[in-house]
Write a protein that binds this DNA or RNA. Structure first.
Length: 330
DNA sequence: TTTGGTTGATCTCAGCCCTT
DNA sequence: AAGGGCTGAGATCAACCAAA
């Protein structure tokens, strides 16, 4: 375990070094944040005023969409099936680019060419996915990862404790409404070959807030669709730690306060930031819990290792085993 | 008309911090 | 050291509204 901690300490220094040598991200992320912040109210009003999100289709945005195009992605089982645009007072929906896969993976033959969200064809399209229970087998592994990611996000998004496997957790969403993947300027999937990649870097699977009141923590979550020997939790934690170091440096950069707000916190950036670095994967017979609550220090800030192993049934999370603190609600 | 998911105003409360 | 106020999260629940 000490070796592991040493390796993690070194990894933190390595990532910090990369982010010091390459500085283009500072201005780039400052601009992302400023544009996203200035669009928050518009995004909220589009969502609240013009249409509603209908399960099992969920709204997503990537950073490009959030900062300029103001376009939403619509996904089913984590897979993109349509795009939504705001045209004057109207929301339009288009399946351009997705027609082939929608038919291949979900048997959906409905084509939408920028038609109104409220139109008959658009409503038929939504109903198709309501009745569609599973994906055909032709779809690739990447889509399975997306499905798991969506499964976890749907679970975290629940707001009643009663049928929620783990309470007091919410995913970070753009303007509180659209799911998104936080980009980083790092390539970290192969942790022994860590690289600075500028705008081509990898994304963080899930950002979430957990806890209550002022002690609510930001979780940087790395998700795997299987508990695979080739990618054991210790390796996943390292990949996640690399991304977490970026988030920490981002929060300590000139745009840190804006990002803190985008991540869903109302106050000022804390004097000491504690980031939870969480490995999320399907539960197995012998889950590795050895790294739980280990802390990697970085000045006043620190990284706190956690695990979350989940079980699913019928495309819903039914149980989680986690080192995250459990809060009891009355 | 009924149903069931979504929304948003209001409520609750752990943890933090300040005062005594 | 103890107690009380404050803050900022999630929880709750009634109203709302699209779909059936």
């Amino acid at each position: 375990m000490n070796d592991f901690i040493n390796e993690c300490d070194n990894l933190v220094l390595e990532v910090k070094g990369l982010l010091k040598q390459n500085t283009e991200w500072i201005l780039r992320y400052r601009e992302y944040a400023e544009k996203i912040i200035s669009n928050i109210e518009t995004i909220k009003s589009l969502k609240h005023g013009r249409f509603r999100e209908w399960s099992p289709l969920y709204l997503y945005m990537n950073v490009t969409q959030a900062k300029s195009q103001m376009e939403f992605s619509l996904r089913y089982l984590g897979q993109e099936v349509a795009r939504l645009n705001a045209v004057k007072d109207m929301i339009t929906i288009s399946t351009k680019n997705f027609v082939k896969n929608n038919e291949r993976d979900f048997g959906c033959k409905i084509k939408l060419d920028d038609v109104e969200w409220k139109s008959k064809t658009a409503s038929d399209f939504r109903r198709h996915f309501l009745n569609c229970t599973k994906r055909t087998d032709n779809s690739g592994k990447k889509n399975e990862e997306h499905r798991i990611e969506s499964l976890i996000l749907t679970e975290f998004s629940k707001n009643t404790g009663a049928n929620k496997a783990f309470s007091y957790i919410q995913p970070v969403k753009i303007a509180g409404v659209a799911r998104f993947q936080m980009p980083t300027p790092l390539y970290a999937s192969d942790i022994n070959n860590l690289k600075y990649c500028g705008f081509r870097g990898g994304g963080i699977d899930i950002l979430a807030r957990t806890g209550r009141g002022r002690t609510t923590k930001l979780c940087i979550m790395e998700l795997k669709d299987e508990n695979d020997k080739k990618e054991p939790p210790a390796k996943v934690i390292k990949q996640d730690l690399a991304y977490a170091v970026f988030i920490m440096e981002l929060l300590r950069s000139e745009s840190g306060q804006n990002w803190w707000k985008i991540f869903g916190f109302g106050g000022i950036v804390p004097k000491s930031i504690e980031l939870y670095v969480v490995c999320v994967m399907p539960s197995s017979k012998n889950n590795n819990t050895s790294f739980a609550d280990k802390i990697i220090y970085s000045g006043k800030d620190n990284f706190h290792f956690q695990y979350m192993y989940f079980q699913e049934n019928n495309n819903e999370v039914v149980d989680v085993v986690t080192s995250l603190k459990k809060y009891v609600s009355k």
